[in-house]
Design a protein around this nucleic acid. Structure first.
Length: 427
RNA sequence: GCGGCGAUCGCAUAGCCUGGCCAUUGCGUCGGAUUGCUAAUCCGAUGGGUGUUCCCGCGGGGGUUCGAAUCCCCCUCGCCGCGCCA
């Protein structure tokens, strides 16, 4: 959410941003109009309140001196003031609510370096990493590999849970766990604190971190409790300091979170989504930084560098992409994606998303830090380290051998009990 | 799940019984002053807001009242005990 200060004093910045995104200015104008209306209503209410406060003082004084006549006169004069105030209060509140409802839907201001484009076709390559694998045979898709090696059971998962769920078995399941340990160790060594979050959140906290439309298309609601399954540990970890004033000496707060992630994936279909690429439940290791506003762009580059180093060590071929204006979403001000090369699909596909959300989530969450000049919003950043199901797909497809076995990345061998290749599962 | 107790500005606290001055005090943090002593002392600031001599704010929501941190009801969370339990 953009601060009201921005609307009142620098609205041209918001307008320029909307032009870049190709959005109409209707919402901006509506926020400004409602803000003026709200100010008017509030002024009216405050005047009545002041009147009541003065009267209350008069009554107190009169009663002290035993002046019954005066106190009773004032009391009858202001008897209906309470109702007037509560009516004005209601009016002001509904205007404020309406203003902020619209404000919630207005996207974050983009960083200047974000390329302008209508959709994902406008994304630009930032850098290319690793070596494209060269096969002496026709490489298999990950779907073929998990089937021939019996590493994943989609049918039985569908039977007991539904489509897009999976059982992970044997060496591939073990590799999944190795990836978790590897990624956590990697980031702990770079000064991040390992945090395991709740996997359910209440609505008020959730509204602080995500686009409102996500409640319809992304999150699972829990019955009968008013909770939502998290779509990523970014959400609980970012909301962790909701409604708090953070001591500046604590900044930056750097966390590496691991959790199961749950996504409804409404509307997602297609051949490319089969297997374990797009699923309702997967595990993700996530980097989170809560930062001083002046340092967030440096942290954003650090988060990307951590990903690059981590994925280089896995020995994979991938590219880093600058996400363009049309593909950005509401929360991030700038975003890099890592896209891994999938030989089976003959394409680069998204495995990591690295965002600086500046003060957008912090404003919604009322997450501030103390300054000599009052409290100010912090900045929040998040980046995937490893989404294990997608990392497994990339490793399987890039490291496959002609017989269908898969070479374990060197950095994971020790966590696989010395095993250098994934062997088929017997059943 | 049951019973008891609680929630006050970054933290800790007073005020609540008995409704009415500016929500008290300590600590921490920040700013300033001063002094030769690894620092001390003094002063100031330190929840939010459209109108900043004003208004709001005492976990959230409702109610009573001319007036609620204070009285009543509901909810949330926490602590203690009991029950259940991986």
């Amino acid at each position: 959410m953009l601060s009201m200060d921005l609307f009142r004093n620098q609205v041209d910045k918001i307008r320029e941003d909307h032009n870049k995104r190709g959005l109409s200015h209707e919402s901006i104008d509506r926020v400004l109009a409602l803000d003026e209306e709200w100010k008017g209503a509030l002024k009216e209410m405050e005047n009545s309140r002041r009147e009541r406060n003065l009267a209350a003082k008069g009554i107190a004084e009169a009663k002290k001196t035993g002046d019954v006549a005066t106190s009773e006169k004032i009391m009858s004069d202001v008897k209906n003031l309470g109702e007037v105030i509560s009516a004005l209060d209601k009016k002001a509140n509904s205007l404020l609510e309406e203003r902020d409802k619209i404000r919630m839907s207005i996207p974050n201001l983009l960083h200047n370096a974000v390329p302008v484009g209508e959709d994902e076709g406008g994304n630009t390559q930032h850098s290319l990493h690793g070596v494209k694998p060269d096969f002496s045979f026709e490489p298999r898709t990950h779907n073929e590999l998990i089937e021939m090696n019996k590493w994943v059971d989609l049918e039985r998962a569908a039977k007991i849970a539904g489509s897009r769920f999976f059982f992970l078995k044997g060496d591939l399941a073990r590799l999944e766990m190795a990836l978790q340990s590897y990624a956590v160790d990697f980031l702990v060594n770079r000064g991040f604190t390992f945090v395991q979050p709740p996997v359910m959140m209440n609505r008020p906290a959730y509204e602080g971190v995500t686009d409102l439309s996500d409640f319809e298309t992304v999150m699972y609601g829990i019955t009968p409790d008013p909770l939502y399954m998290i779509a990523t540990s970014e959400h609980p970890l970012t909301a962790m300091y909701m409604d708090e004033v953070i001591e500046p000496s604590l900044l930056p707060i750097k966390m590496v979170g691991v959790s199961a992630c749950f996504r409804r994936e409404v509307g997602a279909h297609g051949l490319s989504d089969r297997g374990i690429w797009r699923v309702h439940q997967f595990t993700k290791i996530e980097q989170i930084v809560i930062s001083h506003p002046d340092e967030s762009w440096d942290h954003h580059e650090d988060l990307l560098q951590n990903c690059v180093d981590l994925w280089d060590e896995l020995g994979l071929h991938y590219e880093v992409v600058n996400i363009c204006t049309g593909d950005m979403g509401t929360v991030a001000a700038r975003k890099y994606d890592l896209e891994a090369w999938l030989p089976g699909a003959n394409a680069f596909k998204e495995i990591v998303s690295c965002s600086n959300c500046t003060d957008y989530q912090a404003n919604r969450l009322r997450m501030r830090y103390r300054t000599s000049d009052g409290n100010a919003a912090v900045h929040t950043l998040n980046s995937t380290a490893v989404a294990t199901s997608r990392a497994l797909v990339a490793i399987m497809e890039q490291n496959q051998l002609e017989d269908g076995r898969v070479t374990v990345p060197n950095c994971l061998v020790s966590m696989m009990g010395g095993k250098t290749h994934l062997e088929p599962c017997k059943w």
